[in-house]
Amino acid sequence: MSTLTEAPPPLAPAEEAEPPRKRGRFTPYWLLLPGMLWLVVFFALPMIYQASTSVQTGSLEEGYKVTWHFVTYWNALSEYWPQFLRSVFYAAAATLLCLLLGYPLAYLIAFRAGRWRNLIMILVIAPFFTSFLIRTLAWKTILADNGPVVHALNSLHVLDLTNWLGWTAGDRVLATPLAVVCGLTYNFLPFMILPLYTSLERIDGRLHEAAGDLYARPWTTFRKVTFPLSMPGVVSGTLLTFIPAAGDYVNSELLGSTDTRMIGNVIQTQFLRILDYPTAAALSFILMAAILAMVTIYIRRSGTEDLV
């Protein structure tokens, strides 16, 4: 069809749609102004305030002053590095689980659901509308100490294995790392499924037939055709899962114990209970920097730069 579309080659579609009229020169700036102002004042500026708070010293009563007290960072890191590591580890585990669990469902919706496609889609999205806190509390019931799940895991000797791995302790699942990771996985699973589905749905079904025609077995077809083509979905899905999971403190608080505290719990406690603002700000700043660094490296390496 390219021969039919006769547009002057290297122009943005915007240029074609709206020929430059003198009156319209400032229109984009007026359109952008309120929203961008909002983001600058309530997103970017706070980041600067936070950076400044993190190098202040003082007390609540006497007020804080910027003293370039970088020792706060050192202290925060040396005291809370286990929580940092734990956050990364839990979030990575949850992300991996989301990918393993989410991929078949996204694949099912995209290629195998037929007329059930819309219904399954609704069932994936609808839980969003029940407060996630209520749903997370339901896991307390599901994983209860004398509930059927723990019973089954116990009698199948799965708990022996997870105990040995340090994921669970004794006859319990609640208040263990396993419960927290399970909750994180559950909470962010739709964020994995939706981008996966979007990129799978774009794949032409005939590609599967072509691969089969060219002597690829189903598994090879998946490895060589389907999965590579779904990479944009995999990348944005893992990001959308990992980032919020790493900063989360709700699952750890509701399903875990003091031994499963993540960095989000620490920041929350420092800020809202202990009121040690510099330490809290420093921790938050480190978390932000770490996540941004990881995301940047990840996006670079996976080669998908245009996620937005």
């Binding site: 006769e6 002057p8 080659p9």
Partner: peptide, 9 residues
């Protein structure tokens, strides 16, 4: 004319 010859413009 062929694509890009300026006829649409």
């Amino acid at each position: 004319g062929a694509s890009g010859c300026g006829k649409t413009t």
